[in-house]
Simulated assay, not measured.
Amino acid sequence: MNKEELKQKIISDSDKAEAYISDWEVVGIDDVCDLIDQLDEHVEELSQEWIDEHLCHEDEYDFDYIDPDDLKQLFLLKPEKPFVPQFVADYITDNKEAGYTLQQVFYYIHTDYKQGEINEYVEWVSTNEESFARAWLNGFLIEDDIEVWQPITGFYNEVSNLGRVRSVKHKAGNGKIYKSKILKPVVTNSGYVNVAIINKSEGNITKRLHRVVAEAFIPNPENKPEINHIDGNKENNEVSNLEWVTSKENKRHAWENDLQVSVKGSEKPLAKLKEEDIASIRKEYREGCIQMELAEKYGVARQTISSIVNMKAWKHVAEEVSE
């Protein structure tokens, strides 16, 4: 029995009730059909069994109906999609496209397992047979796509590991009650993403989305001050794309990945000198040390020393630092 046949049966069984529906606390036939439309194909037989079990009959007017409280349970027949690893999702998709059935796949899996030919697919399916079957029949969600929400301390907001922010239902100072909703972030001219969140005492505050995500999900035991976008995309604020870094680590990552950031001095990956060395070189030069001696001492070319003492290189090291 498919959906349309099931709907027609319900309609047929309810024809006699049409004249009395408005006088009874029963569920209208259109609502029942809408519910049926939401059920997956492979549970339709089960839904029919459920209807047969819960169908009530009114003797005086001779019609069938379903109690509203009972009908709510029909939603429970709709199966949930299990979470599976990406390689299992690919395995299911590939086998379905190849025309294999679930029974055939289980046969091959069990055969490989018995013969000791165990790979990641065989191992996972052998220990998660029920989840695999449900994923094959009902569809699946990939584990990496699981969205987890954390409260933002001090705010009427929550942030997810996928980089989304929502407000939570709360009562404002004026007594108005605000419902929960997903917030729309704003991409700034610098490419970073901002989001306006609601501080419980100060009202709306705009913050960088990547910082909100990192503070909620990523431990920072070394108290590093900056957050790096691992793939270089400032709009990708999923927790898997973020990491706490020092300023030097952040600039080094940008330099190594050609992200067009101006890196100076010791922050350059191939730098041989540090800012402290520059101060010493300039001081020693003023005190009479010649450039060749300084080059040998610090392991650089004489031309490098010349550029340093003549303020053509390492200009960001302030003159007063050299004093």
Results as ranks from 00 to 15, higher is better:
R166Q: 13
S167T: 15
V168R: 08
V168N: 05
V168P: 04
V168K: 08
V168Q: 10
H170G: 00
K171D: 01
K171C: 13
A172C: 09
A172M: 13
G173R: 14
G173A: 13
G173N: 15
N174F: 02
N174E: 08
G175V: 11
G175W: 08
G175I: 06
K176D: 08
K176G: 01
I177Y: 04
Y178D: 11
Y178H: 14
S180L: 02
S180F: 05
K181A: 12
K181T: 09
I182V: 14
L183M: 14
K184V: 14
K184E: 13
P185R: 13
V187T: 15
V187L: 10
V187P: 09
V187A: 09
N189L: 09
N189A: 07
N189T: 11
G191R: 00
Y192G: 00
V193W: 02
V193S: 00
V195D: 03
V195K: 02
V195G: 02
V195L: 01
A196E: 14
A196L: 05
A196W: 00
I197G: 06
I197Q: 02
I197V: 14
I198S: 08
I198M: 14
I198G: 00
I198V: 06
N199H: 15
N199V: 07
N199C: 05
K200Q: 15
K200Y: 04
S201Y: 05
E202G: 03
G203Y: 03
N204S: 09
N204H: 06
N204F: 01
I205S: 08
I205E: 12
I205R: 12
T206A: 07
K207W: 12
K207P: 03
R208W: 13
R208K: 14
R208L: 15
L209M: 06
H210V: 11
R211F: 12
V212W: 05
V212M: 09
V212L: 09
V213L: 02
A214M: 07
A214I: 03
E215G: 04
E215I: 09
A216Q: 03
A216K: 03
F217V: 08
F217N: 06
I218H: 05
I218C: 10
P219H: 15
P219N: 14
N220L: 10
N220Q: 11
N220S: 08
P221E: 15
E222T: 11
E222A: 12
E222S: 10
E222I: 07
N223W: 03
K224N: 06
K224D: 02
K224P: 02
P225D: 12
P225W: 05
I227R: 01
I227A: 03
I227H: 01
N228V: 15
H229K: 04
H229G: 04
I230E: 00
D231K: 02
D231F: 02
D231Q: 01
G232M: 11
G232Y: 08
N233K: 06
N233E: 11
K234T: 14
K234F: 12
